[in-house]
Design a protein around this nucleic acid. Structure first.
Lengths: 165, 165
DNA sequence: TCGATTTTGTTATGATATAACATTTCAAGA
DNA sequence: TCTTGAAATGTTATATCATAACAAAATCGA
């Protein structure tokens, strides 16, 4: 497990330069292996999501894409984001109507997010227990689970320190 | 545990008339105990959500409220829905930008939803394992969980029968 | 009853998302 | 290498979801 894959890197001091690079590299590898077309807009979109450990709205992404000379209309961003989500390179966070890069690309997992309501930081952890439990709960009622969305809103360690309740 | 509270009633044959009544009754009791003002718009909004085991968008709710002589503008619905959500009588489903009545009002729980992508049915189950696991995962990284949102999208038992994969 | 507070309603606007279609790019087979 | 169909990109236009700001009415306690 590399640095980018260890749990909750987002909320800890880390070399973000390399964390970002790791994910991007994994995405490139994945793309060439799976025959995905990680085109310039798509790759740039992923880079944008990776710039910070935060979820970005589609229009924030769009602004940056436009700055870089890509199209200026909403579908440009939505399509790139949709591609990334469908191919497991990013996740949509329902609670925020926003998107975040996947920190474990290629590793099968149900995305589990911890969203800090103070700093808007987003951490993604493997949390297999959680997804297993949800899958099991589905089985119990005969529900075939296809996708899951697990989100916790609260306060991250660093924001707890800043304003100690 | 009454009928309305048993897991995944939504996906089973049941007397919806009474299931609805049970929840409404529990809401009334809760309101008088906690001093909540379950006013006409708010109560009607809850009734509307209870009419089917589906999540409704705010504008769908608004249309029905308007038909009943309440205000015709978005804030009317959003405010009533917000009140219900804040007081645990309804939940917002991020994935759908929609709202569903809480089927276990007054019972402390993290809402766990099973959303059928075929029929749009929504079941809420207690699934304590899931929320416990999520809470635990939060502890591990020092994240203080305040609210959670757990959603699974897939196919409900009855829709699996109709179109057997 | 009076005054403060909450609730309801309105207008106006902001934020998020997609449909439909034209143009360009790309990759695979002839 | 040329052709051609599919995929990707870009545009316009519009749909859908959500809230800010303020006025009027209802409610509740002193």
């Amino acid at each position: 497990m590399n640095k980018a894959q260890s749990p909750a890197t987002a909320f800890r001091e880390h070399n973000h330069q390399s964390c970002r690079g790791d994910v991007l590299q994994a995405a490139d590898r994945l793309a060439s292996e799976a025959g995905l077309r990680l085109t310039p807009v798509r790759r740039r979109t992923l880079e944008i999501l990776l710039e910070e450990h935060r979820a970005l709205g589609a229009y924030q992404v769009l602004d940056r894409l436009a700055d870089d000379g890509f199209g200026k209309q909403p579908p440009v961003a939505y399509r790139a984001l949709e591609f990334l989500v469908e191919n497991g390179l990013a996740h949509r966070i329902g609670r925020l109507n926003a998107f975040a890069a996947c920190m474990q690309p290629g590793v099968a997992h149900a995305p589990t997010f911890f969203i800090c309501s103070t700093c808007d930081g987003v951490a993604e952890t493997p949390a297999f227990d959680v997804s297993d439990a949800l899958e099991f709960a589905g089985d119990q009622i005969g529900f075939r689970v296809e996708r899951m969305n697990i989100e916790a809103v609260g306060t991250c360690p660093s924001c707890q320190r800043d304003v100690p309740k």
